[in-house]
């Protein structure tokens, strides 16, 4: 992997938008079809991970990602609580749908940043070299 090949970098660059699209599809359609926050988030994280194959020398801004992950975690805790207390007693179907989609979205982004942090931390800061 030290001498990275032109073919792999070109093809991965071409594939990025499709992987991103698939990830967001999995997240946003997770309440109706197979998939959901975790799986979609893992697909989004694989975008960052394959980026390592293209440019093995450059790290990403890990601190920003860490802050984002913490913020998303707080959001994931706060949002259901808020939903419980604010929504009316007999809430409609639409409200449930919005709740599910937003929750899936938050979980997806959190999983994506978590996986990315784990991977880049491992690749650049742990062990030898």
């Amino acid at each position: 992997m030290t001498d990275h090949s032109e073919i792999i970098s070109r093809i991965t660059g071409l594939l990025y938008p499709f992987i991103l699209l698939f990830g967001f599809y999995l997240i946003l359609n997770g309440h109706a079809s197979p998939g959901g926050g975790f799986q979609g988030g893992a697909v989004l994280a694989s975008v960052f991970i394959t980026r390592y194959l293209v440019e093995p020398d450059r790290c990403i801004r890990l601190n920003t990602l860490k802050t984002a992950e913490k913020t998303l975690f707080v959001c994931i805790i706060l949002y259901p609580a808020l939903f419980l207390f604010v929504s009316p007693a007999n809430h409609s179907e639409l409200l449930n749908l919005i709740y599910l989609i937003v929750m899936n979205f938050l979980i997806g982004l959190k999983v994506c940043s978590g996986f990315t942090i784990i991977f880049f931390r491992f690749a650049f800061f742990e062990g030898g070299i």
Partner: peptide, 28 residues
């Protein structure tokens, strides 16, 4: 299908790349 998606992504993408990076680190 839910489990299948998770297995395909995590099993064959993320862990494979992680193992390869680990191998490269361990080689020196």
């Amino acid at each position: 299908p839910d489990v299948a998606i998770a297995e395909a992504i995590i099993g064959s993408t993320i862990t494979t790349v992680l193992y390869l990076v680990a191998l490269r680190k361990y080689k020196v």
